[in-house]
Amino acid sequence: MTGERHVPSGSFFWLGLAAGWALMLFGLAGLLDDAARTHPVNFGVWFLGSALVHDALIAPAVFALGFAIVRVVPVRVRPFLRTGLILSAAALVVAFPTIAAPGVPGNPSALPRNYPAGLAVLLGLIWLGTGVMFVLKSLTVESRHD
């Protein structure tokens, strides 16, 4: 995809650029105006940090995993493995704060469940499901070969 180039042009682009930057500057002005509550420096760390942590840590790790899968895993298993990994990653991200958060002292109704157990159940279901799909697929392919 890196080879495909597409340089923006046209009135739609310039209009969007002007309107979009107006909105961004409005947001930035509001942020700075409300500095007592928004803590712009700390905000900036989290905002830019979000892009940086993704681009420099998460994405390379995911790509390393992808390359490893292509090396090690047999071709017919790969699509199922990938589906399982995509589903698991989503479950992990959404479960993360419920497990990492300290909870609220004196408020047992906040984060009331056993989240590590819930995550384990979800992951179990995901891999059971992908495993069953793989077996079914292999069976239909083999019977077609007969």
Binding site: A22, F26, G30
Partner: peptide, 13 residues
């Protein structure tokens, strides 16, 4: 305020 900034960037995109 992050929502305004992000939506602005989305309009450019």
């Amino acid at each position: 305020w992050a929502a305004w900034i992000t939506v602005g960037a989305l309009v450019v995109h």
